[in-house]
Design a protein around this nucleic acid. Sequence first.
DNA 1: TCTCCTATGTCAGTTTACTTACAAGCATTG
DNA 2: CAATGCTTGTAAGTAAACTGACATAGGAGA
Lengths: 141, 141
Amino acid sequence: MSNDSPPVGYLLKQAQSLLHVRMEEALKPLQLTVSHYSCLYRLRLEPGISAAVLARRTFVTRQSMNVMLQQLIDRGLVTRPSQADSGRALPTVLTPAGTAALDAAQLLVERVQNRMLGGLSATESAALAGALTACVTALGD
Amino acid sequence: MSNDSPPVGYLLKQAQSLLHVRMEEALKPLQLTVSHYSCLYRLRLEPGISAAVLARRTFVTRQSMNVMLQQLIDRGLVTRPSQADSGRALPTVLTPAGTAALDAAQLLVERVQNRMLGGLSATESAALAGALTACVTALGD
DNA sequence: TCTCCTATGTCAGTTTACTTACAAGCATTG
DNA sequence: CAATGCTTGTAAGTAAACTGACATAGGAGA
């Protein structure tokens, strides 16, 4: 038997890269990048989060996140107080416009995700999620 | 039943991002980046490949690939004729030093990969590879 | 043969994210 | 209470990738 599938690392990169491209295409009509979407998505899950935490959740640096947040603030999708009531962390939240944009974006993104998982059964999709989670854990979260 | 695992897209990004970090750490002693490694790895699989094809295989642009190839050429790990014998494509190949560097790198990378898959059975790993391949296919290779 | 189309290599400019560095606030500990 | 350490926000500089554009070489088709 010839077991010559590409290494898992390569497949991971390929799948992630391709998904990113497809998401970018899908979000283009909304003038949103994948990074913007990730940011908004996270802010709905954890409202009032700090930029530093948000950065870690989306796998970028604080500095990059602050640049992106400024863009989103300028477009009125996000708000952040200019001064912290306690500590230095500035709690960031979605504006109504931000929520609306996220709703629209989510629809497009889910379409891409469904397309990606189209060839898999529900069981297989769940197994994929489980395996990826195990990989993350093993690599020392 | 509460089915609230993060979306597969997020898990994909997380796993890939973390794997990239771990590979970068592992390759640091060899003064190689993950991009360098990918490049060398591909060149062993397909010797004499053009820079443009190599770029597509490693998910970067031709321009970026040519910059990286120049670095690898400067370090004596790769060679490329200055003129093409047919067409414009310049066939790129590993030097003996490049092969040696790749051998050393591969050892380190496989260690990381094994760590990542440590929590999975052989069957589960194969299923993961299969699922990722299906995702790539579904997203329109 | 002439033309059109595609692929490759390369140059220039831009964008994006990262690294380094520092000040500010809070918690922990001696 | 003072000191240390950790987190956050921010600024400046660097590095990496990208997009746009162009010339060249070869193949496909009228």
